[in-house]
């Protein structure tokens, strides 16, 4: 299938992201990258687990974390994962406008998550929990901050795709790009599940 072919709902393949060699390569390459990211985040988690008691006189996890805020942030991110699934569902149905809509909702929810996190970090800094304070602080900010940076990058990525392709609709050149961006977005949620469990929930019970 030629990559810039004008397709219709009937001729659009069932798995458009894998209908070209380039698409297959991107699909596989990205999953492999996620395997590597798993190890990257595991190293960050492992270090956090080793250092989470070393507060060097600064505030501890139990004193700092606000569960209601974390819960709301979690709900936002989890819902954004679902909305990105919706977007890909519409992509497979060759419904470009609905796909854009649901990616847009995803971006809004993701931005909400990021906003809450920035607010949260601000509060912590006011309470004396700064990166340079202790090993706990350094490892907390690096782990949760790296995740946040991934969220920010993901938002930029999806917005760029949406704007770039707004005028030309779906084809076999951009379908893999949208698919891979959504895989990335799901992975960010996977990491967050472990962050809220290991950092926040375990932070409250010790």
């Amino acid at each position: 299938m030629h990559v810039e072919e004008k397709l219709t709902a009937e001729t659009f393949p069932a798995s458009p992201e894998k209908a070209t060699l380039e698409g297959k390569n991107k699909f596989l390459g990205f999953w492999l990258f996620l395997g590597g990211e798993t190890v990257l985040f595991a190293s960050l988690f492992a270090t956090y687990l080793a250092l989470r008691d070393k507060t060097a006189g600064g505030p501890s996890a139990e004193e700092l974390f606000r569960m209601p805020l974390v819960f709301v942030a979690t709900m936002l991110l989890l819902t954004s994962s679902l909305t990105s699934v919706y977007a890909i569902y519409h992509m497979k149905n060759f419904d470009f406008k609905k796909m854009q809509l649901w990616f847009g909702v995803t971006v809004l929810l993701g931005a909400g998550f990021l906003g809450l996190e920035i607010f949260e970090f601000n509060e912590y800094v006011r309470e004396g929990h700064v990166f340079t304070k202790s090993a706990f602080a350094s490892s907390f900010y690096t782990l949760v901050g790296t995740h946040g940076a991934h969220v920010a990058f993901g938002l930029l990525w999806i917005v760029t795709l949406m704007i770039r392709n707004a005028k030309r609709g779906l084809n076999l050149y951009n379908a893999p790009k949208f698919y891979v961006a959504s895989l990335y977005w799901h992975f960010i949620d996977v990491v967050w599940v472990f962050i809220f469990t290991v950092v926040y929930l375990m932070g409250m019970v010790g």
């Binding site: 996620l34 798993t38 190890v39 985040f41 595991a42 492992a46 687990l49």
Partner: peptide
Amino acid sequence: GVLVAFLTV
């Protein structure tokens, strides 16, 4: 990746 992750943790 999960295996290496597990070993590290």
